[in-house]
Amino acid sequence: MLAFVIRRIMQSAAVMLAVALIAFLMFRFVGDPVNQMVGVDTPQDEVARLRESLGLNDPTIVQFGRFIWNALHFNFGVSYQFRQPVTQLLAERAPATLELAFTAAAFALFVGLIMGVYCALRRDSWLAQIFQAISLIGVSLPTFLIGILLIYLFAVVLGWLPSNGRGQVVKFGDWWTTGFLTTSGLRALILPAITLGLFQMTLIMRLVRAEMLEVMRTDYIKFAKARGLRTRSIHFGHALKNTLIPVITIAGLQLGSIIAFAIITETVFNWPGMGLLFLKAVQNVDIPIMAAYLMLIGFLFVLINLLVDLTYGLVDPRLRIAMRS
């Protein structure tokens, strides 16, 4: 088990190195950072001094090494637009994105799981048919359209929920701000969380339904029925547990995409998170923010992958053996 964990961590480190290389290459190929920092009337020797002080004249490999070293210390340089350390900018906005992403993921997982199990067990009922139809809409409609439709319906026509922003936030600890503790914060969270989670929810629902139908056809479910076990135990013990293995993978990996693709939802709802920051950075060619964001998303994906792999062992005893060897 330990060897498995160590091996997986080493693989993760290799992936992160590759991501770092791509992030680093952005500095070299997407415009000249010095041009972004200096004005048109800056004297040439000043530009040269700046170039020297930023270490841009060093060999590429040395610069890459320095980039890695700084990244390990959470130092991604200073934003060209804001003249502030990138790490600080991201840290300020991370709580907004993470709270949104986790709410959306929890919504997607719980509602998707319940709807999926219902659709599998009562596949011919009219409610299951309706769920199936909704899931088709969720899969096919683009996120920004869902967001705009929800805003139109619940914010403009009905006026029940706010259409943008994070509502009132409460400072929690040193740098974390949370919207969970105020009514306006919670109300502001509802629409963006549904928008962001709807696609994942329908995905999970369809996956759970398909997997569960598959599991219900297996011999061990037939044998469980032949032994006269209670229906509840067969459905929610024997069948559901076997259904969950692939669902864990997808749900886990989707958490990464939820955080990464929060960009669109954050734009639609003007949500003050990292996605919005990243979009502004792209518009202004603010490479340090883009590089740091890329590293952060890469890291989250690798971390989630690792956690998903380790969770398998907890659920499926057969994989514990595979991990040991």
Binding site: T218, D219, Y220, K222, F223, A224, A226, R227, G228, L229, H238, K241, N242, V315, D316, P317, R318
Partner: peptide, 18 residues
């Protein structure tokens, strides 16, 4: 299970693996 029981063909798939 109580009065009538059944044994299936394939023991490899008749038991819940988890």
């Amino acid at each position: 299970g109580r009065k009538i029981a059944m044994i299936f063909q394939d023991p490899l798939t008749s038991l819940n693996p988890l």
